[in-house]
């Protein structure tokens, strides 16, 4: 898309500077307001700052071109840059919640023995919930006294982390543990905080307590969670944040697209309360 250059100033240089400074301002605004954490992992922030610096410097060096004549200018590339600039400034950021993705979520599923990788080292397995699942509950009477599920908090408690961040890491470790070592913790008491996620086909007493885990940026955000069964009168509204306390159980359900029966972890809720959504809802993978 070519336009005839202006006789007064070099439009291309002006566009270049506008694009570079535009993004520099947009990114800086995100960092200043703290919104950046809804977009990328905190460890990426130094790189973003570096990018801002680079763009400003390049813009400065481009200013000397502003008064050089250029006859014909191709403006097409600049239009591409304009699009995210406009949406970035105009549209508000969206914190991922229970309704965000069309994809399935990571649930605490018991690591199957037949996976080719050694079961003790299997990564947190996830399962896609679909609408036609049936739940076959296996109720087990707790054989061990209900002591709170103590995870080795020492291993990741760094004094610099905020309480919320710590809780996030605990959440993740818990989900992991419940899948890797379910047998060992069945019957133990557990406490978790997250938002309520409802899948089509859930009974009224079923929900998932979940949180988003971000590895690098919002594009790879994945919901991790644990199935819960709660018979209290509390209305399980999707997206509301809750703190649940309950007993770990094992249950099975049938995956509709291949009819496989999966064993997974479940919390039988004893106490549940609504809490305010935290300021940092995402868990940043360390």
């Amino acid at each position: 898309m070519y336009i005839k250059g202006s006789k007064r100033i070099n439009i291309e240089a002006v566009l270049k500077i506008a694009v570079l400074l535009g993004f520099a301002v947009l990114f800086s605004k995100m960092i200043a307001s703290g919104e950046i954490h809804y977009y990328v992992h905190p460890r990426m922030v130094p790189y973003v700052k570096g990018g801002i610096g680079a763009m400003v410097v390049i813009a400065l060096f481009t200013t000397k071109d502003v008064f050089r004549m250029k006859q014909h200018i191709n403006i097409a590339p600049y239009l591409f840059f304009l699009m995210p600039l406009v949406t970035g400034f105009v549209l508000p950021v969206k914190v991922m919640d229970a309704t965000s993705f069309a994809t399935g979520i990571q649930l605490s599923r018991k690591a199957p023995a037949q996976v080719a990788i050694q079961p003790s080292k299997a990564p947190a397995i996830e399962v896609a919930l679909d609408s036609n699942q049936t739940f076959k509950e296996v109720t087990e009477t707790p054989s061990t006294p209900s002591t709170p599920l103590s995870l080795d908090k020492q291993s990741f408690s760094k004094t610099s982390q905020t309480v919320a961040a710590l809780e996030g890491q605990v959440f993740l470790k818990t989900v992991d543990k419940l899948s890797l070592d379910l047998d060992a913790v069945v019957g133990q008491e557990i406490e978790l905080a997250g938002f309520i996620y409802l899948e089509e086909g859930f009974e009224s007493n079923q929900f998932v307590v979940g949180r988003y885990v971000v590895t690098c940026c919002a594009a790879d955000a994945e919901m991790y969670g644990i199935l819960c069964v709660d018979d209290s009168e509390l209305d399980h509204k999707a997206n509301s944040w809750v703190r649940v306390k309950g007993i770990v159980e094992q249950t099975t359900y049938r995956r509709s697209y291949d009819d496989q029966e999966i064993e997974m972890a479940q919390i039988r809720v004893k106490e549940i309360e609504i809490i305010a959504p935290p300021k940092e809802p995402y868990i940043y993978y360390n």
Partner: peptide, 30 residues
């Protein structure tokens, strides 16, 4: 499948995800 949220909310998510990719990639492209 349960896509729950209305279109506007999905557009916002798309925008957020899109910008997050740019935020991540720009420094390395530069």
């Amino acid at each position: 499948y349960n896509w729950g949220a209305p279109i506007y909310s999905k557009i916002l998510v798309l925008n957020t995800v899109f910008l997050s990719v740019l935020l991540e990639a720009f420094p390395f492209i530069l």
